[in-house]
Amino acid sequence: MKIARMVAIVVVSLITLISMGGSLLPGFDYIRQDRKHFSEGPSYEHWLGTDAVGRDRLARLIHGTRVSLLLAPAAAGISVVLAFVVGAAPGFAGGVTERMAKAIIDLALSLPWFFLLLMVRAMLPLNTSPAVSAAITFSVLGLLGWGVPARILLARARRLRQSEFVALARAGGVSHRRLFGVHVLPNLLPVMTAQFWIAVPVFILAEANLSLLGLGVAEPLPSLGGLLRDLESGLSVRSDLCNFAALFVLVVMVSSLQVAFMKHEVS
């Protein structure tokens, strides 16, 4: 286990280092279009080949990983915090608060947020820079993506509220705040952590789909989600292994993060 965790930490550090610093290396320009060598496989000049307009795939992968790695966990964090506020706290409080929270969560799960996203795009100036557009996109994802974890946290918090050890603590005169902070919160952390790790790749993919609405990471800035979207055409048009590079990086990254930071596994 320790070896696995160490390897995972090394992998995560390596990917982070390369994605943060890689774009400083000469030759890793994610914007430049080499129009004489477009849609090509790996070569000496372009180690992972080039995309459909001749941009270096490796440079775009490095830069896209940076964009997604910085923003997707932040969005996942926002959604987890909101899920906690809307789900866990009312679940523990019970009564009317809990019923209202359930109604809000049900609505959050089923309303057509697609249109809200369109409104967000309409309110943004057309000349918003790609970086700001990316930050706004992931923020919106975080603000809208709390429904599922909130429901689970609510159920969990409710069960804890009705559990014997909480009843015992309450009977012993433990304050509500201490009860929640010291006894309930640690029991909610595994669910919150699980949601966080699920949300990161989900938001990376969701960002790519948001480009249909004018949100998402705008050209020429790359993102992991955008590179993954190319997988769809890659399957039918060009079965080139380099198409899967973004997927490989994402899977390795997400798996490594889970192994590195998850404390408890099934024993």
Binding site: L118, R121, A122, L126, N127, T128, S129, P130, S211, L212, L213, G214, A218, E219
Partner: peptide
């Protein structure tokens, strides 16, 4: 130049 892709009705 900023590129903005939108859905058709927008």
């Amino acid at each position: 130049v900023n590129v903005v892709t939108l859905d058709f009705p927008s």
